[in-house]
Design a protein around this nucleic acid. Structure first.
Lengths: 144, 144
DNA sequence: TAGGTAATGTTATACAGTAACATCCGCGGT
DNA sequence: ACCGCGGATGTTACTGTATAACATTACCTA
């Protein structure tokens, strides 16, 4: 999916949730799209300051939170960063593989895994919130 | 396992890895043990300052890192905190269930789950590092 | 056009983590 | 006993991450 179609799909997703892909959100989404892997909030902030002259942390955090809330981005806790989700239109659970060596990130569909996890946690009476699972490790290019 | 036996086991674990459960590390471990769920580094720092008069962030982070390195604690990225592992003596993968409502944390053994995850990631050529998986959601006392 | 709501701007600050270097302390070798 | 070494801790200062609180704007609608 190229950037144009991606952004159109993002607009539809926002609209479907009663919101809008505002100029700021679109700009932030494009910035994150421009990075191959995980991006930090303050990197986006710096880019934003370069592009539009002024921006403060809340500005970028609000946009990132919004985009993550509806699945266009995934927050990667282990890395304090964000990655683009390239298939938010299909309902899915994401399994994010973050390489500790090269910083690269890959996303797998993990509906089946999530099912099996849910069964495990059900025995403890625990209901997991739909979310992204993150594994750190080494990717195929990096493991020695 | 009561605190006395737990600390003795911790001492053994440190020794087995060529280290020591120093006074500072023991103190930090006891502090974390005193909390029912997840604890933040700066909470431990405050406790430490109360108990011994002075302490700076590196002091507590070094101790926490050491304890987590050998499995006495687990770091919970999603919450920027740490929890005690009550069964570090059995080799295991931890599956941590963190309740978003009450802040409570439960830990399950997840060797089987980790196996299945590894199989999934192997198809992408990815080798996950042994680590703790964290799921957020709602525990049996809290889901409405 | 007044009033409400969502979004954004602004300031300040809280919270999290680490770099760099100084000091101490226990221990093996002589 | 003394030296020298390495691990652990202390200290200072800083960088990075995130949010609270409030002001302002933009836009829709009654």
């Amino acid at each position: 999916m190229d950037t144009q179609h991606y952004l159109q799909a993002a607009e539809r997703l926002c609209a479907a949730n009663g919101g809008k892909l505002t100029e700021l959100r679109r700009q932030v989404l494009e910035l994150v799209l421009g990075y191959p892997g995980v991006v930090k909030a303050y990197q986006v902030l710096a880019d934003l300051q370069r592009d539009r002259g002024a921006a403060a942390p809340p500005t970028v955090y609000r946009a990132l939170d919004y985009l993550a809330q509806y699945g266009m981005l995934h927050r990667v806790d282990a890395l304090n960063g964000y990655i683009v989700c390239h298939h938010f239109e299909c309902s899915h659970q994401a399994l994010i593989l973050a390489c500790e060596q090269c910083g690269g990130v890959e996303e797998l569909d993990a509906d089946a895994t999530f099912q099996s996890l849910s069964q495990t946690t059900a025995r403890a009476g625990f209901v997991p919130r739909a979310q992204s699972l993150v594994l750190t490790g080494s990717c195929k290019h990096c493991h020695s």
